[in-house]
Amino acid sequence: MTASAPDKSTILLIDDSIDMHRLLSVRLRGDHLEIIGADNGLDGIGMARTRSPDLILLDVDMPEMDGFEVLQTLRDDAATHEIPVIFLAGMTTTEDKVRAFEMGAMDFVSKPPDFAELKARVRSALRISFLMKMLAQKARLDGLTGLGNRAYIDERLNEEFAQSTRHNRSLSLIMSDLDNFKSVNDTYGHPHGDAVLIKFASLLAEGCREGDIACRYGGEEFAVILPETERDDAAEVAERVRASLEAVEWLVHPERRITASFGVASLSCVEAPSIERLVAAADSALYAAKRKGRNRVILAKPEGRRFSLSA
């Protein structure tokens, strides 16, 4: 989930004038910009959805659907609402400009445009939007381990839960906690404690399959979201990570292994599935793993009168 530098940016021009398309494709040529175009609002919205451009240049004055309607539609759609938009408008009132900015336009360029100015504004808009994306990602990253943080887990759990209920698919969650971590910190110092957290985070990420989402839940607690995964398959992932951590030989304390406990739950384990119940089920399985002596994977038992597929 790292922001990649914008080495090539795609710009979508939505304008009913063929001349704007011709002029723009020449004037903005090079500069690592790819220009794609639509000559009406409806096609433009479709292209915004399918091509996910980095920036949209939007003509205000178009027959049928005008720029304001297009902008409103783009803003109402989760797939397009974060794409920055620069308005292109001829004779406009201050009222129009204010309205455009209030609707979320990033900038305003008057038509006919001075292309040197337009180019500069395009670059500036791309830079700002890149920084905004990076900041938004950073706010969801754990600074020490590079995994997603608590805010990111909550966000992804919401998304994945919605997906799984919509498509009637399974969803599993692993909650994990390093064993006796306080003692590791107290005995070998916090820098080593941090090194253990970083190592565990990387083992967790390695143990995940494509599509699994590993995060640091807080402190020495970690979580993995496993979309479209039944509980027993999630348990295999947990077991793989558990074994790989136990196998690590630590230079600072060759005589002592570090272990972690794991609780695994899936939506099929809980009555009236909800995110809260899924988290609670994985949490209590984790608690059971601690109680039974740590360094193990415990599966949440299906609640209520359900049959179990596992022995």
């Binding site: 001349d19 704007m20 038509k111």
Partner: peptide
Amino acid sequence: AHQLKGAAAGYGFPTIG
């Protein structure tokens, strides 16, 4: 007229615009 207004300056004909 609207089309010419928008385009002419872009092609270097501001007086036409």
